[in-house]
Write a protein that binds this DNA or RNA. Structure first.
Lengths: 155, 155
DNA sequence: CTCCCGTTGTTCGAATTCGAACCAAGGTGT
DNA sequence: ACACCTTGGTTCGAATTCGAACAACGGGAG
């Protein structure tokens, strides 16, 4: 076990800031969404990803990939959303194993309904706090970080 | 319900990057810590915060504040860590209600043991991916975001 | 065609999370 | 001393999370 390269002051500040911001933001958004639309952040994200997909429809695995949760977690949440009538399952014609999650009309409406409040919160807490330049750096930097992590994941 | 100001391309990229990086990083660090030291990320963070405090000791509420979890969540985790012998509870002399969480010698060792691997992962996945300038912007921007969120919280 | 291996989605059990309710105990104003 | 509001931690129940194990299918090598 060799001596690691400890984080210097700036590095530590970046790391702590990232962790803190991430946790605090999640808490707040979770509360806001739950109070405002009865959806958890995860559920909201599922609906958003579906509504962004052609036909409002995605394969379970594809959806899990984009959401960055475990397959079992997705199964659970899709079941919940199905009970709530916001999503429906449809088996894939070309692959018997495959399952599509389809956004229902009610699901679309739920997103339309929840989006403005959520968006306003994201703006207020993150986007509008940062300058244009800071946003660009964030997008670049964290984009690259995400890309590498995803690549790793598949390796 | 007025029309919200939707996120433009850059703003969306920043937001998506942030969410993705945060989720992916958490997943990876969780796995790494669990495999490597048998600690969850939360537990590790508790130990780190304690070891950074004078005497390795903090009041429960103070600790919950720094960790950004609910009080009940902290109670649970401290109980777990106590069972594992890494932390011990001690009641506060000046306030009968108060409880200190103390890092035990074994707890200190656990941190010493887990830190290098964790640190290496944080470096590899985040810190070393970014330039010095990007790190500075991250620290500034997200630091400000966190400060505001914390201030809000207390309001 | 048949044997294998990778994929797909679900199920299962264990661990964790949260908020609301709760019980003391502190502190304040009268 | 008294009533009253806040604070500190725990308990409780419900919801969610994950990974490992599973069953069923797809798709190529031979």
């Amino acid at each position: 076990m060799d001596e690691p390269r400890w984080l210097d002051q700036d590095e530590m500040a970046a790391w702590r800031g990232f962790v803190a911001a991430s946790n605090l933001l999640n808490r707040r958004l979770e509360r806001q969404l739950k109070d405002d639309s009865g959806l958890s952040h995860t559920q909201y994200e599922i609906l958003v990803h579906l509504s962004a997909a052609p036909e409002g429809s995605l394969r379970m695995t594809e959806l899990a990939d984009r959401l960055i949760t475990s397959k079992s977690g997705l199964t659970y949440q899709v079941t919940q959303l199905e009970k709530a009538g916001l999503v429906s399952r449809r088996s894939c014609p070309s692959d018997v194993r495959g399952i599509f999650a389809d956004l229902t009309e009610q699901g679309r409406e739920a997103v339309r309904n929840a989006a403005p409040g959520h968006l306003a919160m994201v703006r207020e807490l993150l986007i509008d706090v940062l300058s244009r330049e800071q946003l660009a750096v964030l997008a670049d930097g964290l984009g690259e970080v995400s890309r590498r992590l995803r690549a790793d994941e598949r390796a």
